[in-house]
């Protein structure tokens, strides 16, 4: 009966998740047909090549793949770190009982509400050789040309857009922390910095980690921002998604699927490692605080965790 009741959900999941993944894996095993030198026509049917599309990344033709791989990792790493720091700061500001708090919140969230493609176009103007960025810096940097400056441009635009996302999730986490904890700390004579380190950060950590995880998964798929802001085919910002798209648009679905499958595995691995690490980390923090009740805590995940540390902090 239970299986019957969840079967519609399983069916939908199978249709939208399992089928595309399996289909991508399947087509990654095929290559591109040759041109018949006699007629000049492309031969019919894609030849089966097994894992050749995957092993190709370790041969000479793999340069472009590894470049895209490092770009993806580098852009993801730097932008997520910056987003986390800035997003956290934003959340702390939004959480203050300032006058006009609603306005501050709304204005911080504007970048997140703008579609990436549009914000990429906006930043393209800003980073134009005669754009605002150059006139503010009083420099003549050609941002959209190949090189490190293109990566910087992408990171700036990405952080501008997604820091508010981190901010909003962290703000939700901040609002659960009860005021009593802070009052108790103040009575104990803890200054503002001490309160931030010993109360706010540990208590907001579950929400923060979820935000960071989401951002990691999202940033690893980065496509539209570098594609529009810097341009297709610029090697210094080419990500794995862009590489797969380029292969697919040149009607090489085999290699395109292979790159997508690798990206899928990479994202999966990072998410898995992150959740593992996150679990271990929480456990470590708790052992330090009280210890003992490890088994129960290991089972509890991100969402249910915010009550326990609070108690510990009060204690």
């Amino acid at each position: 009966m239970a299986a019957f009741l969840v079967s519609p959900t399983l069916l939908v999941l199978g249709l939208v998740i399992a089928y595309p993944v399996l289909s991508a894996v399947h087509s990654s095993l095929y290559s591109v047909p040759d041109i018949d030198p006699e007629t000049g026509f492309v031969e019919k049917g894609d030849p089966f090549v097994g894992l050749d599309n995957f092993t190709a990344i370790f041969s000479g033709a793999g340069d472009r793949f590894w470049n895209a791989f490092w770009n993806t990792s580098f852009l993801t790493g730097t932008s997520v770190i910056l987003e986390t720091v800035i997003g956290l700061a934003m959340a702390l500001i939004m959480h203050q009982g300032l006058r006009g708090r609603a306005w501050v919140r709304a204005s911080i969230l504007v970048p997140w509400a703008i579609p990436t493609a549009i914000s990429a176009l906006l930043w393209r103007w800003i980073f134009d050789s005669e754009g605002i960025a150059n006139s503010m810096l009083n420099a003549k940097i050609l941002w959209t040309t190949e090189g490190f400056q293109a990566q910087v441009a992408v990171i700036i635009a990405e952080v501008w857009k997604t820091a508010p996302f981190v901010g909003i999730l962290v703000l939700a986490g901040l609002q659960i922390i009860s005021n009593e904890v802070y009052e108790a700390a103040r009575v104990d004579g803890a200054g503002p910095i001490r309160r931030l380190w010993s109360i706010t950060l540990p208590l907001v950590k579950p929400a923060l980690l979820v935000a960071v995880l989401f951002r990691l998964l999202d940033a690893l798929r980065m496509f539209d921002l570098p594609y529009i802001l810097i341009g297709a085919g610029k090697h210094s910002v080419e990500t794995l998604s862009m590489l797969a798209q380029d292969e697919a648009s040149n009607v090489r679905f085999g290699p395109a699927s292979a790159y997508s499958v690798i990206l899928f595995l990479y994202v999966f691995l990072i998410a898995f490692a992150f959740i593992k690490l996150l679990g271990a980390d929480l456990l470590g923090a708790r052992d330090e605080a009280g210890g003992g009740k490890g088994a129960r805590k290991r089972r509890s995940r991100v969402a249910g965790d915010d009550r326990n540390p609070q108690k510990e902090a009060i204690a």
Binding site: D128, S129, E130, K140, L142, T144, T145
Partner: peptide
């Protein structure tokens, strides 16, 4: 010019 490397038709 140096920024010629960023020129498309419209720029």
């Amino acid at each position: 010019p140096k920024d010629g490397i960023t020129f498309m038709e419209e720029q």
